[in-house]
Amino acid sequence: MIKFENIGLRYGVGPEVLNDVHFTLEPGSFHFLSGPSGAGKTSLMRLLYLGIRPTRGQISMFGQNVNDLDRHAMSHIRQKIGVVFQDFRLLQHLSTFDNVALPLRISGLKEKLIRKNVEELLDWVGLGDQMKRLPNTLSGGQQQRIAIARAVITKPRLLLADEPTGNLDDEIGFKLLGMFEQLNKGGTTIVIATHNELLMEKFRHPTLVLDQGELHIAPSRTGPLKKFLDGVF
């Protein structure tokens, strides 16, 4: 379970980017995170993948209070989180294979098993024949698939994706969401930050809506709350 209690966040002496954010993500849940530009989506994602610490409030993840964790324990929690960054953040000097293998190497898996797992996953995302290629020799869509493969290779307990369909056409975007749903069925908690209305309409999952630093939760993009959410955008 992931729990945010009265989270406030500000950068330096600036205004609060997130204000009293309070929510709980049950294990195996699937949420979209939406909101207008500048609403604080990326900041919330950064808090979720432990890239920053909140200014105030308490975050607990997988039964541990994140505020009290030392560096060693923090690394262990991060190993349970898969992240697809908006700009992919691939290591440009490493091949497709090595980029995807990275989380497994960090977790100390044997090379033989790494090879087996990575090859299987790259086949699954359709990059089985691109294993030796460097990221900058691949298209944006292919790079995105590497980023996704890297995020899911360890079968994380929490998967965070920041605009994962941004570079993809709708058809591939839907396929990708289908892939995330498969993972979700396996018990992975998923949070996807997106602006894609169509995607949220098609895949009916609860949405965390951020507006001016405050969070509202809508059960799905259909039903009685649709009007409220439409009003936000």
Partner: peptide
């Protein structure tokens, strides 16, 4: 170095320190 597996030709460092 992890260069023994064939597909891992680029993996010397995760951070490109030798470049």
């Amino acid at each position: 170095r992890s260069r023994t597996l064939g597909v891992s030709d680029t993996h010397t460092y995760d951070i490109p320190l030798d470049k």
